[in-house]
Design a binder for these strands. Sequence first.
DNA 1: GTGGTCTAGACCACA
DNA 2: GTGGTCTAGACCACA
Lengths: 117, 117, 117, 117
Amino acid sequence: MINIDYTSREPIYLQIVGGMERLISLGILKPDEQILSIREFACQLKVNPNTVKKAYDILEEKKIIITKSTKGTFIASDIGKAKELKINSLVKDIKEKVKELESYGLTKEEIMKKLAK
Amino acid sequence: MINIDYTSREPIYLQIVGGMERLISLGILKPDEQILSIREFACQLKVNPNTVKKAYDILEEKKIIITKSTKGTFIASDIGKAKELKINSLVKDIKEKVKELESYGLTKEEIMKKLAK
Amino acid sequence: MINIDYTSREPIYLQIVGGMERLISLGILKPDEQILSIREFACQLKVNPNTVKKAYDILEEKKIIITKSTKGTFIASDIGKAKELKINSLVKDIKEKVKELESYGLTKEEIMKKLAK
Amino acid sequence: MINIDYTSREPIYLQIVGGMERLISLGILKPDEQILSIREFACQLKVNPNTVKKAYDILEEKKIIITKSTKGTFIASDIGKAKELKINSLVKDIKEKVKELESYGLTKEEIMKKLAK
DNA sequence: GTGGTCTAGACCACA
DNA sequence: GTGGTCTAGACCACA
């Protein structure tokens, strides 16, 4: 489900975090659904369990997943906020970059043209 | 003129490169103008001279600055390309983020609405 | 009657022990009263029977419950000690936390003020 | 400065977090002060660097320390909030336990007597 | 089997 | 030297 780029500058654990967020936002992973155990996922991704653990820890802190010790790990019941936050953050990033483009003298129309290409 | 974020994941030398490109694109640094020596700049930024050296090397390779040994370092005479490259890079960044937003299920129209706010 | 927090660092069997002690101290469970069988209780709590067994073992060792084989499990006839133990344990907890507060530079008077609020 | 109890149920990395918080609250570690590198600290505590790293990661997230890559790790400039939060949390814990004691039929006076012992 | 903790140690970019 | 990432693998409590 998730493709890892082992050569990327982005750490593997962050790629896992991002990948999980995408799967959830796309509705492929649903609220309360149990997800792969750390070991299984590590095995599937051909990655060390500690690396998956680190990703799960971050997702847990973001309230996107919940870990029930010895029972397994589950998608949170309410993940609406997580998705919304991610989208808002992306929108903010884009706005900043558009602003930067404008500071280089481009008009909104010119920017739109370039983006459409 | 340039703010360094020591806690950022982006290496300092790349922050310097980006900062110089911005100053040039904004017209604050002009063609043929002499810029600070590596040591002066390092001192001002409270950064290791090797770090500034690395940034200057990259800028030189991009033909954005020119080093005349014993005389100092100067902004290139023709820096049109630099600006263009910067703009293209920003456009590429935005396209990627738009793509990511789409992967979260948003349509182009929805994205435009959000950006317009 | 007892709420289990599956995400807590405190093991489930200890949560059950604590919960039972509370129910007894509050007088909800009375001396000589029969309590749920391990299986029934496990079923109700949605927990593994082994986990309830472990909790019952501990409660039995504390003389808080008594198991009469084939007849079932009962609250002990004399549970005065149980209450006393619970109180002592709470007092000990509080003392530790007060000590910690003092290690942060607060005086006894300051702590009392804060508690009175 | 920090004593680790290797036999405790509390994980070592949390003992380090707690110990650092105490040292800061006591004013032994001051704002902006550089602290031991992960390696040095690990060496001193006779613990694995990863364990110290985990503690530092948590402290960083709590905004108690700041990591400047390759420069080292520093106590945050503003750590007032951290201390206050910790104290409030302890006070809250104590209040809850006092309440629990009262639910067992003890009066405030009786509780005070027990705490004074 | 599940997650939690920890060690030993390697390799990397950066300064 | 400093922090960041990752692996391989051990051991534990718990269910």
